[in-house]
């Protein structure tokens, strides 16, 4: 942060007019929390499918 970073557009963008720490940490934490929601929801669903598959395969074997 600070002056002199405005020469390069990319640096100027990342600098966020001196608010870089605030802006990027806000966006970062939003991305992280939303990603974790998606990750755990999907992982639970996949694990459940695998567990139920084992359950039904084993009951099939017991019956036959």
């Amino acid at each position: 942060m600070g002056e002199g970073t405005g020469d390069i557009p990319m640096m100027e963008f990342l600098n966020m007019g001196g608010y870089a720490g605030y802006v990027w940490s806000s966006y970062g934490i939003v991305v992280l929390v939303l990603y974790l929601n998606m990750f755990f929801s999907r992982r639970r669903h996949q694990a459940l499918l695998r567990r139920l598959k084992r359950l039904h395969n084993s009951t099939d074997n017991n019956e036959s």
Binding site: N37, M38, S41, R42, R44, H45, L48, L49, L52, K53, L55, H56, N57, D60
Partner: peptide, 27 residues
């Protein structure tokens, strides 16, 4: 997220039912 979670809940609650059995054994 709600749809993914609801699908999981449904599977859990109906795990003994015929449609769940067909679903998981057909995969």
């Amino acid at each position: 997220i709600v749809l993914v979670n609801s699908r999981s809940e449904l599977l859990e609650q109906e795990k003994r039912s015929q449609w769940v059995k067909e679903l998981v054994t057909s995969q």
